[in-house]
């Protein structure tokens, strides 16, 4: 018999807020120290890591906890990124960059949205799209779902390329206001992890676990399969939209193909490497992979071996699958 070191302490008010408060305090003290002692380049890397933590953690809600292997997450990131960018784009630059002014409903030609509402709108639009796409697609399982969601990602990137009057097509949007920084990115990291933790500690999260383990059983115990699959998919998409918006306002330039296969691959393997059954597994995976990318970039250039990072990622993925199938933080053994 295998014992699982999983403490399911009865939920109490202080049992929720004390760990969260302590964790949040610790996170921001550490970030504060980093901010003082580390140089800008490393802080840049840490911020990128934060954005990927949001993306990978939210993806894990479907891929890890609900057992719905989705490859469409970057599609939602793209939607969040483009939506928020179109809203926050500088009025004076709209004409020069050939971007449309906002419709009157959204503020008209002379209005530029503040960052937070634009970011939230990006998340909400991504969530709405997830709801529409999810209803038919989530009836599929396993490989079929993976392929269908990958198809969604391709459709979204192709549309972003094709809708030139909104997105400037393949040339992308540049000179995006620089709103994302270490602090607001990590506030969103904290929100994402907190919300996911609360989902997992309550009825919806347990329903998602049940669906992953056995749909037949879940159904016969009163769990509405479609409702909770959509729940996971839509909440994941919301945070993907947020991650996309933060990403766009950090790199300050976006192109449709950035949200394509390579990014999909990164964020899909992050939870797997870090541990998809642990709340912090995806965050660890994201930190490792992104840090490695920046650390190995000089080596790649010096040796002239471009693609070295991807090779190392792949090797790491294979090793984790072989020796720690539950991921680095995964304690549970795999069910036979």
């Amino acid at each position: 018999m295998i014992k699982v070191n999983y403490s399911n302490k009865p939920n109490t008010f202080s049992g929720i807020w004390i760990p969260f408060g302590v964790g949040l305090g610790f996170l921001f003290v550490v970030l504060g120290i980093f901010n003082l002692v580390l140089d800008n380049y490393i802080l840049h890397i840490i911020t990128v890591i934060g954005i990927y933590i949001i993306a990978a953690t939210s993806l894990n809600l479907t891929n890890g906890y609900t057992g719905l292997f989705s490859l469409g997450h970057t599609g939602f990131m793209l939607i969040g990124a483009y939506t928020s960018v179109l809203l926050t784009y500088k009025v004076s630059l709209r004409a020069a960059y050939n971007l449309p002014s906002l419709p009157t409903l959204l503020g008209g030609a002379n209005y530029q949205w503040p960052f937070l509402p634009a970011l939230l709108t990006g998340g909400v639009i991504a969530a709405i799209v997830a709801m529409i796409v999810g209803y038919p697609v989530l009836r599929l399982r396993g490989h079929y779902l993976a392929v269908a969601s990958l198809g969604f990602m391709i459709i979204v990137t192709t549309m972003a390329k094709g809708m030139k009057s909104f997105t400037r097509g393949a040339s992308g949007i540049q000179v995006i206001p620089h709103y994302s920084n270490l602090w607001n990115v990590y506030i969103w990291v904290a929100i994402t992890i907190f919300v996911l933790w609360r989902i997992l500690q309550s009825a919806p999260g347990r329903a998602m676990l049940a669906i992953r383990e056995s749909e037949v059983s879940a159904q016969s115990q009163g769990i509405n399969l479609m409702k909770y699959k959509l729940y996971a998919f839509v909440s994941g998409a919301f945070f993907a939209g947020i991650a996309g918006g933060l990403y766009a306002h950090f790199t300050r330039s976006i192109r449709p193909y950035e949200f394509s296969f390579s990014m999909t691959f990164f964020i899909v393997i992050m939870p797997i490497i870090g541990g998809s059954r642990n709340l912090f597994g995806p965050a660890l995976g994201a930190s490792l992979l992104i840090a490695m990318r920046y650390l190995l970039k000089p080596a790649e250039e010096a040796l002239g071996v471009y693609g070295l990072v991807e090779l190392i990622y792949a090797a790491l993925l294979v090793s984790v699958m072989l020796w720690r199938p539950g991921g680095i933080l995964g304690k549970e053994s795999r069910a036979k």
Binding site: R198, A207, S217
Partner: peptide
């Protein structure tokens, strides 16, 4: 059974139909 979950979790999940709280209740405790 929910094979890779604990015995306790298997039982917790079954109580699903009786939990009527909204997500906001779970979010803020």
């Amino acid at each position: 059974l929910y094979g890779s979950l604990t015995v306790e979790m298997n039982l917790n999940i079954s109580y699903h139909v009786h939990l009527k709280y909204r997500f906001i209740d779970a979010l803020f405790g």
